[in-house]
Amino acid sequence: MTVLRAILFVPEVLVVLASPPLLMSVIAKTKAWFGGRVGPPWLQPYFDIHKLIQKNAVYSKTTTWIFRAGPIISLASLLTATTLVPVLSDDSLLGFPGDVILLAYLLALGRMFTVLAAMDTGSSFEGMGASREVTFGAMSEPALFLSFVVMAVASKSLRLSEMIGPSLIPGWQVAGPAVILVVGALLVVLLTETCRVPVDDPATHLELTMIHEVMVLDHSGPEFACITYGAALKFALLGSIVVHAAIPHGGWLAWLNAPLRMLELGGLALLIGIIESVTARFRLNRVPMLLAGATVLSAIALVLVLMRRTV
């Protein structure tokens, strides 16, 4: 860790933790523009979180300590995962070989406790959301991990910051098509994990169409603030991985890199907003096919990367 890195550590962490709700408002503004509306204010997500923290929480008689612990554990796992993902710079805060597996399983830990908190209410709505979430989560794991394999083979490293860092530039030159396919697969995984259209519609509250929204239906007050912020943070983390894999920088200076990465994340949020506005939500039977398609994309990328290496 250089001196510059040590000095920039605290501001970087603060910016990384403070910016995710801004990405949410970028998506909201994009969708509003497509709908001919002005949309909510840019700082609306922050106002929402502030409002929720001040509210009182209502608990159900059926729930146990798991209902109260679920949002806390899922947000804690996301905060732990933040130290592993390079967001604004090319290096993550606490990376090590094999941290990419830990990242994926931390997200799974968050998912498990969100699902258990949903089952804790004893309501059929939350059970429905929980059932859908575990189904789509299970099917998106192979796509995610195959992408990791491709990036690991391309960069010959098991460290996330090296897999998607400047070492991917020679990887792009050598196995360009494979990396494009991987970025496509990761985009589909991003849409699934952050529950965006076409997998789930975050704006609606109809039981036929919800996955994530219905799982957290009973949470209120500060717990719901945890959940809202956690969803935004998850989007920022997975979005960072997609952005770093798609647009590798060359190890530039920090003052140039950081704003550029913020702009790229904003561009990704814009892209997601566009996708949400022009696509309709898939029928639930079709979502496994979408995820299988992402897995196939990653598998083709793996074949390309392995062939390229032997040839």
């Binding site: 799974a108 299970a138 099917m139 794991e141 192979p142 995610l144 195959l146 990791f148 897995t295 598998a299």
Partner: peptide
Amino acid sequence: VAALALMGGLALA
């Protein structure tokens, strides 16, 4: 690796 990931996801379910 993909199969092991699938096993993990299904075990979670």
